[in-house]
Design a protein around this nucleic acid. Structure first.
Length: 480
RNA sequence: CGGGGUGUAGCGCAGUUGGUAGCGCACCGCUUUUGGGAAGCGGGGGUCCUCAGUUCGAGUCUGAGCACCCCGACCA
């Protein structure tokens, strides 16, 4: 339960974040370093995220499956880039059933290799393609520095894995699934992500191309919130995923993978949260409406609760996720603050005075305090609340979009880039540099390339760092 | 894995020259309260991070170990 005020974001964003996660009961620390217990409130949010994504995956022809958590160690070594990328962060099991294992087992950091093994067995002919499978699971990466939701040793996610007959189909799939993430982020989470392509140095280990959605947090740091990889034929060759084409010739498949994790909860927290706590987008919030009854004596309680139950039923009947706060011994004022901290989009208050007037109070979370409170008739409450939820959802997206746009600056020189980054903003610049030059910029400014955004400026220009002719602009920002 | 810091009730902390552990919040009970973070009274809760040492006696002194946090390097 909540007690005192939170540290304001402006004072210490990091402390604000940790306190919000713990005090709103989204998550807790696990007993071993870097692990996270996702509590029911956080898990319900994750379930709502899952439902929206899963719906979109099914609509694009994908099916779910379950794959083993233990991967034979030699699988990881088959794709050169992949091993190099993941070797430092693997958890390895060497003992099973009290006996030393013949071959150590890697706890999956991601399932490309296990999928490669299976797809090689399953795919024989062009008739078996495309193969479109998604996994909902958890993976383990031995991170050195962890933070709840953003980077934990074990995290939950979905990983899609597909195999196709042609390069074009593979690329189409990779882009299509990034579009799914963009649509989900914007329309369900009210997060105006920027889709784009990663530079060479920021690519997934083993991918030809990595696409990303980048989100701007309230401290203006960037958060990579979902990725989609075109794996080309790299894994197909490493795992011998071949099919016989119409001409009776063996061909290597073209594979993709794409993932979005519980990190996205961190994106929601840091995109919308304010000094009062969480602000959850109505479409994903575990509770869309909380009803707080107000009464003093038993006689008041009786009439108030009668109205509360009636309103509750009407909202449930309209498929609105509603919770009645029936806790005794807490003042209404306490409950207002409590649910505000937990980010519930709409609070509905009913007291004796409302009962007399057939009214109730509606408070919208995106406008905290008394300012966001209006009195409305009880009649047609479901329609009134639904309108309010829609309007909150839209307002949150608009606010986040404005914030994002105000904090991205086009820069024409390296000096300008340094200034903009030092101000905490993102810089968009013409770019024709290589990985070493990216590294140099990171060392000097702390900023990394986030992506070549799909939304590009007109024309061409000179690279902000090297002065070489550039045809693409890249986004620089400090990132989580 | 480097540099710094911290380990005492669920959380935040105090604990004097070494003398047998306390405060606030939270929790439980009762009473009065309840339209923007209520109050009184009564209660429960501790391997003082671990191990070893010094001492009649260690939360306090010594040594070793462990864990966590912050800052860097590495990463969804």
């Amino acid at each position: 339960m909540s007690d005192q005020k939170l540290t304001p974001q402006s004072e210490d964003f990091n402390e604000w974040y940790n306190a919000v996660v713990l005090r709103t009961d989204l998550a807790d620390y696990g007993p071993t370093r870097g692990t996270m217990i996702i509590k029911p409130y956080g898990w319900t949010l994750w379930e709502n995220i899952k439902a929206q994504l899963d719906k979109r995956f099914k609509a694009t022809g994908h099916v779910n499956a379950g794959f083993p958590m233990f991967i034979p160690e030699n699988f990881l070594t088959k794709e050169a880039q992949h091993v190099e990328g993941f070797a430092p962060e693997l958890a390895v099991v060497t003992v099973g059933g009290a006996k030393e294992l013949e071959e150590p087992l890697v706890v999956r950091p991601t399932s490309e290799t296990m999928i490669g093994h299976a797809y090689a067995k399953w795919i024989k002919s062009y008739r078996d393609l495309p193969l479109l499978i998604n996994l909902w699971n958890s993976v383990v990466r031995w991170e050195l520095r962890t933070k709840l939701f953003l980077r934990t040793t074990e995290f939950w996610w979905q990983e899609g894995h597909t195999a196709h007959a042609t390069a074009e189909e593979g690329e189409f799939e990779t882009r299509q699934m990034l579009d799914v993430y963009v649509d989900f982020a914007r329309n369900e989470a009210a997060i105006p992500v920027i889709p784009g392509r990663k530079t060479e140095s920021e690519k997934f280990a083993g991918a030809d191309t990595t696409y990303t959605i980048e989100a701007m947090m309230k401290d203006r740091k960037a958060l990579q919130s979902g990725t989609s990889h075109n794996l080309g034929q790299n894994f197909a060759k490493a795992f011998d995923i071949q099919y016989l084409d119409q001409n009776n010739e063996q061909q290597y498949c073209w594979t993709t993978s794409w993932g979005l994790s519980t990190r996205f909860i961190g994106a929601i927290i840091m995109t919308h949260g304010d000094d009062h706590g969480l602000v959850l987008p109505p479409r994903l919030a575990p509770h869309q409406v909380v009803i707080v009854p107000i009464y003093r004596k038993d006689k008041e309680k009786e009439v108030v609760m009668e109205a509360v139950e009636r309103l509750n039923k009407e909202l449930i009947a309209a498929d609105i996720r509603v919770k009645v706060d029936r806790r005794e011994g807490l003042t209404p004022g306490f409950k207002y603050n409590d649910w505000e901290m937990r980010g519930v989009p709409v609070r509905l208050e009913v007291g004796p005075r409302d009962v007399k007037k057939d009214s109730c109070a509606l408070a919208r979370r995106d406008v905290p305090g008394r300012d966001g409170k209006v009195f409305v008739p009880q009649a047609d409450i479901a329609a009134t609340v639904q309108d309010l939820l829609d309007s909150i959802q839209a307002a949150m997206l608009e606010k986040a979009t404005n914030f994002r746009d105000e904090n991205i600056v086009d820069v024409a020189s390296y000096d300008e880039l340094k200034t903009v980054i030092a101000e905490g903003k993102w810089a968009r610049a013409w770019w024709a540099g290589n990985s070493e030059e990216e590294k140099a910029i990171k060392d000097e400014t702390g900023a990394t390339t986030r992506c070549y955004p799909f939304d590009q400026p007109e024309g061409a220009g000179d690279c902000v760092y090297t002065g070489r002719p550039a045809t693409e602009a890249v986004l620089f920002a400090k990132a989580y």
